[in-house]
Computed example of a mutant assay.
Amino acid sequence: MERTDTLTTSEAPTRAALVARALGLRPDWKPSEHLGETLNYVTAWDQHSLNAIYVRTGGQVTTQLVTRTASDGTNYPATEITLTVPVPHVGDVHVVTDWNGDGGGIDLPIMRLIPAAELIA
């Protein structure tokens, strides 16, 4: 999954607005650098937020096992869920979140596409 932008500063507001509109985000949304976001890589708060985007846009859903680092420096495994949405004039936008078993939502439409065996509780 490539996380690069190919736009100039003058194009960024226009393309950011296209991404925001397509995903149903705030009209003034811009990528958060501290989260590693770009116009083609956006984070969702949780599986419920990701599902809201999926219901709005459709798209391809994939998962992968990743290792995250907690604030105390310890590593832990997580299941990253990625929704890939084609956005005209921007390209594929990958919206990601980690599965949170405590957050509920296993019955959400987006979660029905993922075999339970792929989820880390």
Rank of each mutant, 00 (worst) to 15 (best):
M1H: 05
E2P: 07
T4R: 13
D5W: 08
L7C: 03
L7S: 07
S10M: 05
S10F: 13
E11W: 02
A12Y: 10
P13V: 10
T14A: 10
T14C: 02
R15S: 08
A17H: 01
A17F: 02
L18C: 00
L18G: 10
R21L: 11
L25I: 01
L25A: 02
L25G: 06
P27D: 12
W29L: 06
W29S: 07
K30I: 04
S32H: 09
E33C: 00
H34Y: 09
H34A: 05
G36K: 04
G36A: 00
E37F: 03
T38Y: 06
T38H: 02
T38G: 11
A44F: 12
W45V: 09
D46C: 09
D46I: 04
Q47M: 00
Q47A: 03
H48K: 10
A52E: 14
V55D: 00
R56V: 01
R56H: 06
G58F: 03
G59E: 07
G59C: 04
G59R: 07
Q64R: 15
Q64V: 11
L65P: 06
L65E: 14
T67S: 13
R68D: 12
A70Y: 04
D72V: 03
D72F: 09
G73H: 14
N75W: 01
A78E: 03
T79W: 07
I81N: 12
I81S: 14
T82K: 14
L83V: 14
L83W: 02
V85H: 02
V85E: 11
P86N: 03
V87S: 05
P88T: 09
D92F: 06
H94C: 14
V95T: 08
V95N: 12
D98Y: 15
G104S: 08
P109E: 03
P109I: 05
R112E: 08
R112T: 15
I114S: 11
I114N: 05
E118S: 13
E118Q: 14
L119E: 04
I120V: 15
A121I: 02
